[in-house]
Amino acid sequence: MKIKSGFVLEEVGGEYLAVAVGKRAKDFSGLVRMNGTGAYFWRLLAERDMTQDELLESVMSEFEGVEREQALSDILSFEKKLRDNGILE
């Protein structure tokens, strides 16, 4: 999975907000609001195409004390939301 180009992500008071700009704004007019974990996923997926497993490995090595199952369920729900809203390529 990979996030389409044309999104801008900004941190505001501990939260992360993403919107589409340029040509992308024509097909996505919404606002994505994320916490730090979501923004971590977002940044990785905006940069390159990753599988769920690669994303999971990356989360497990980045964050200490995270349960594998919890991380996977977070990734799955994140992916679903992005996919349902047409944010993934």
Partner: peptide
């Protein structure tokens, strides 16, 4: 996780 996706109005 707490990501939310909203459309603008």
């Amino acid at each position: 996780m707490s990501e939310e996706i909203k459309t603008a109005t």
